[in-house]
Computed example of a mutant assay.
Amino acid sequence: MFMGEYQHNIDAKGRIIVPSKFRDELGENFVVTRGLDKCLFAYPIDEWKILEDKLKKLPLTKKDARAFTRFFFSGAVECEVDKQGRINIPQPLRKYAALDKECAVIGVSNRVEFWANENWDDYFSDSEDSFAEIAENLMDFDI
């Protein structure tokens, strides 16, 4: 399980350090793709395969299903951790998530998320104000 928040810079070549606690769980190779809310999602290969299987079951006849799978898979890349514990994030993904300097790397259960610090701070502030309401809306899911 991934949890915690870390601050790292992304360099001009698109390399960012993956926190050592996350590297152990992600493995040497893992998948990074466009996430929701203008961040990137990173999945260990086994989690990616589970998600891939679920997405394959979506009906091809549904426009939203086609759109989501295109969005999700077209941005996906397999990343390899280098000897310094970094990965290289391709330019299209960096552009999507506005990753250009200071970044937040957060653990979210079965995935890791990469955020531009400013976007993360804004998202967190907005969510923090409505956290009680969000929790109340999720009560139907036995949380």
Score class of each variant (00 low, 15 high):
K63R: 15
F71E: 08
G85P: 10
D100T: 13
D100R: 12
F68C: 08
D100V: 00
E80M: 13
C103R: 03
T69C: 12
D64K: 11
D100P: 01
N88L: 15
A76P: 04
T69A: 12
I106M: 10
I106F: 04
D82W: 00
F73T: 12
E102K: 15
C103L: 05
D100S: 14
E78M: 11
E80T: 15
C79G: 09
R70S: 14
L93T: 07
A65W: 11
D82A: 02
Q84W: 05
A76H: 06
K63G: 07
E78N: 14
K101C: 00
L99C: 09
V81I: 15
Y96K: 02
I87P: 02
E102Q: 15
D100A: 09
Y96T: 03
L99P: 08
R86T: 03
C79A: 14
K62V: 10
E102W: 06
A97Y: 01
E78A: 09
E80C: 09
I106S: 13
R94L: 06
R94K: 13
A104W: 09
L93S: 09
V77W: 01
C103N: 09
L99Y: 10
K83A: 11
L99G: 09
K63C: 00
A104I: 15
R94D: 05
A67M: 11
E102I: 02
I89M: 01
V105P: 02
A98N: 14
L99R: 11
D64N: 12
K95F: 04
I106V: 15
R66L: 14
S74P: 00
F68R: 10
F71H: 11
D100I: 05
Y96I: 01
L99V: 07
K101S: 15
Y96S: 08
A65E: 07
A65G: 02
F71Q: 07
V105I: 15
A98P: 00
T69D: 12
E80L: 05
P90E: 05
L99W: 13
Q91G: 00
G85T: 06
F73Q: 10
C103G: 01
N88F: 03
I106N: 10
G75F: 02
R70D: 11
V81Q: 09
A98L: 13
Q91A: 11
I87K: 04
E78I: 12
C79Q: 06
G85M: 05
N88Y: 04
P90Q: 03
K83F: 03
V105Q: 10
Y96V: 02
Q91C: 00
K83M: 04
I89G: 03
R86C: 06
F71L: 09
A97K: 07
A104K: 15
K95I: 13
K83E: 11
A65C: 06
C103I: 04
S74G: 01
C103H: 02
A65F: 10
C103M: 09
I89C: 01
R86Y: 02
E80V: 09
I89Q: 02
A104N: 12
D64L: 11
V81L: 12
